[in-house]
């Protein structure tokens, strides 16, 4: 499957959970493909989004965000287009702590309607989100906050290696990818590299996501650009700087992306099954079905119509120090 075909499976209005954290191992090629396909009305679910939610807000793709902490990170400060989208109420924010969002995802993963979470006492976030607290039914006298289930339509993660069945593994920290892939109705895997299934058989305990849970897999080398994908490449700081330059059009950034430079492989199209472009439906988890992939035809070379729906340019905030975790 190509990146374009994978992105085509996400309909307007879908709830999309994105893997990685800030500028590290995010499914950024996939996010840019959503922009090229002019997706609208998305709900983005992620504990610590940054570049991904910012560029999606910049292109006008987002209606709603459920997030813990949003910033460009590195030394780049706030995410300017996200910030403006929330301040002007073009994007509705459900503000979480990273772990309250995770509690909601755990509820979905565990198949229960809500999930207790530690802490939260004294935070205005509880009243804001109308979270409930419950007394310990076993009589400890402690109250605990409970978060309603959060079930994204699809979780999209960028991984170091996958096989054709969708088995996927990462190097370094898995960030929040494990719980995202257990909570979402469908799982899409974008891999730096395709490896033989035998390589997963050799060390199955290192597999983060088993292929039977994965509905789509594709290959996008350097797909986490301009972020890092340990240990293959680091953050491309000049590219992030250039992205944040509001004097440059978003198209220039999209055209510079690694997936935009890939060439169509002649055999790629034939390997895609007939139903490959069927969009994901919210209710229809398709367990067990995986569209296998070769390093493929990423972005349709002829397509990629310039994205003109760019949001108004905010001035890049330089005033305040980034606020840490």
């Amino acid at each position: 499957m190509s990146l374009a075909e994978m992105a085509a499976r996400v309909p307007d209005g879908a709830s999309v959970a994105l893997g990685g954290s800030f500028l590290h191992r995010g499914p950024f090629a996939f996010v840019r493909e959503l922009i090229r396909q002019r997706r609208r009305g998305l709900e983005i679910v992620k504990q610590s989004p940054g570049y991904d939610i910012d560029i999606l807000c910049r292109a006008g793709c987002v209606a709603r965000a459920r997030a813990g902490i949003v910033a460009m990170e590195g030394n780049f400060g706030l995410a300017p287009w996200y910030r403006r989208a929330v301040e002007t109420r073009q994007v509705e924010l459900e503000e979480h702590a990273c772990m309250t969002l995770t509690a909601g995802l755990r509820a979905a993963a565990y198949g229960v309607p809500f999930q207790p979470v530690g802490g939260v006492h004294g935070s205005d976030l509880a009243a804001l989100n109308r979270w409930a607290s419950v007394a310990d039914p076993y009589g400890s006298g402690r109250d605990v906050w409970v978060i309603p289930a959060i079930r994204p339509d699809v979780a999209v993660i960028h991984v170091n290696e996958a096989d054709e069945l969708g088995d996927a593994r990462v190097r370094g920290t898995s960030h929040w990818d494990r719980i995202l892939t257990r909570a979402a109705r469908q799982v899409f895997v974008v891999a730096e590299k395709l490896v033989p299934a035998a390589s997963f058989e050799d060390c199955p305990e290192l597999t983060l996501v088993p292929g039977f849970m994965v509905q789509a897999v594709c290959v996008a080398p350097r797909g986490a650009w301009p972020g890092s994908c340990w240990p293959h490449y680091e953050i491309d700081y000049p590219a992030v700087e250039s992205y944040l330059d509001s004097g440059r059009h978003l198209d220039a950034h999209l055209e510079r992306a690694p997936e935009a430079a890939e060439r169509v492989r002649p055999d790629a199209a034939e390997r895609v099954r007939p139903d490959a472009a069927e969009p994901a439906r919210a209710e229809a988890g398709q367990p067990g079905r995986t569209e296998a992939a070769e390093p493929t035809e990423p972005v349709r070379a002829e397509a990629a119509a310039p994205v003109r729906a760019e949001a108004a340019e905010p001035t890049r905030p330089r005033t305040s120090e980034p606020v840490g975790a």
Partner: peptide, 26 residues
């Protein structure tokens, strides 16, 4: 770490909840 100004009509939208609401009390 949430907002400067009113939450619903923020003068500045800050990064948001992050670790604080869960880690600060625990």
């Amino acid at each position: 770490v949430s907002v400067i100004g009113d939450w619903r009509r923020p003068k500045v939208r800050l990064p948001g909840g992050g670790g604080g609401a869960v880690m600060l009390p625990t």
